[in-house]
């Protein structure tokens, strides 16, 4: 066995292993999505979207309140986090590029993006739920907003930085003040990028469970406002999947199906937007 042969052999072994790793990754994606689609689709019917949960063993239960609860809390979280995050992203991109404060906020935001979401849940429990002696939809929305905030801030910053300096210079040369340039020119050129970033952040928090476990809790009833414990798809999924009842497992698969489909749809959709935009420019 010559040295050259041995080198070529080693090369082809490594390359084969690498290809197999990639195929394994794809296979796992197909396997998980296949199971979720297969089992989840069977659970989806009219009742799933319109009926309230029923006790275990009683047929015809649905997750209507949980679907509304998830939409409500995710929407509220977006209303808090999007303006907040956009403003702070604007600071980081326009003023805080190289000063210590900017670096610090960027560093902290990057850490918060990956920080354990359950700790955010504990934090919100301590500052909102415990003092008010009440689990509530507000607390859940607030926890989700904290998770969204650094994501929105960082994507806004990145998108603003992509705006070519010539556009800024042209606007400033015409005598526009900095703030007017930012909100009339820069935001507009970065709008589609910021929008996709926000959509991805919303998709991410819509699938979050851990921060809602001790903030929004869960409820089998329709909500009368956001000041009470609020049903949501992910916590219901958790409780039902951990229960010993088959019909609850079924509903849990249905919930998993709905969540996964929505999150993946947003992800694919935003990729298409970004790609068509890149092709045009």
């Amino acid at each position: 066995m010559t040295l050259l042969f041995r080198r070529k052999l080693l090369n082809s072994i490594v390359l084969t292993l690498s290809g197999m790793a990639a195929i394994a990754g794809l296979f796992m994606l197909a396997w998980i999505l296949g199971d979720v689609a297969w089992k989840g689709f069977a659970a989806i019917n009219w009742n799933f979207f319109t009926a309230l949960p029923t006790p275990a063993g009683v047929k015809g239960g649905g997750l209507a309140n949980a679907i509304v609860g998830t939409l409500l809390m995710t929407g509220t979280a977006a209303c808090i986090a999007v303006p907040f995050g956009m403003m702070s992203g604007t600071y980081l991109a326009e003023f805080g590029k190289n000063n210590i404060f900017g670096h610090f906020v960027r560093f902290v935001a990057d850490i918060l993006v990956s920080a354990p979401s359950i700790v955010i849940g504990v934090f919100v429990y301590l500052i909102l739920v415990k003092p008010m002696h009440n689990f509530s939809g507000w607390a859940g929305a607030f926890a989700l907003a904290i998770i969204m905030l650094p994501v929105v801030s960082r994507t806004t910053e990145e998108m603003l930085r992509l705006v070519p300096p010539e556009i800024r210079e042209a606007s400033l040369a015409l005598g526009s003040p900095y703030w007017k340039m930012t909100y009339k020119i820069i935001y507009r050129s970065a709008a589609s990028g910021i929008f996709t970033g926000v959509m991805l952040a919303v998709a991410r928090v819509a699938g979050e469970t851990a921060p809602l476990l001790f903030t929004a809790l869960n409820s089998p009833y329709w909500m009368h406002g956001m000041n009470e414990p609020m049903a949501n798809l992910t916590v219901v999924l958790f409780n039902y999947a951990m229960s010993p009842y088959d019909d609850w497992h079924m509903l849990a698969w249905g919930a998993a199906f709905i969540i996964t489909i929505s999150v993946l749809a947003v992800n694919v959709f935003t990729r298409i937007i970004l790609r068509t935009k890149r092709r045009r420019s």
């Binding site: 990639a22 199971d35 699938g207 979050e208 999924l237 999947a241 969540i259 694919v268």
Partner: peptide, 21 residues
């Protein structure tokens, strides 16, 4: 894209899949 989509699947779906499958 397919590999990145693995990251988009919510963690609770992984957990449920792990438990039942």
């Amino acid at each position: 894209t397919a590999i990145e989509l693995l990251a988009a699947i919510p963690s609770i779906v992984y957990g449920m899949w792990g438990l039942f499958v």
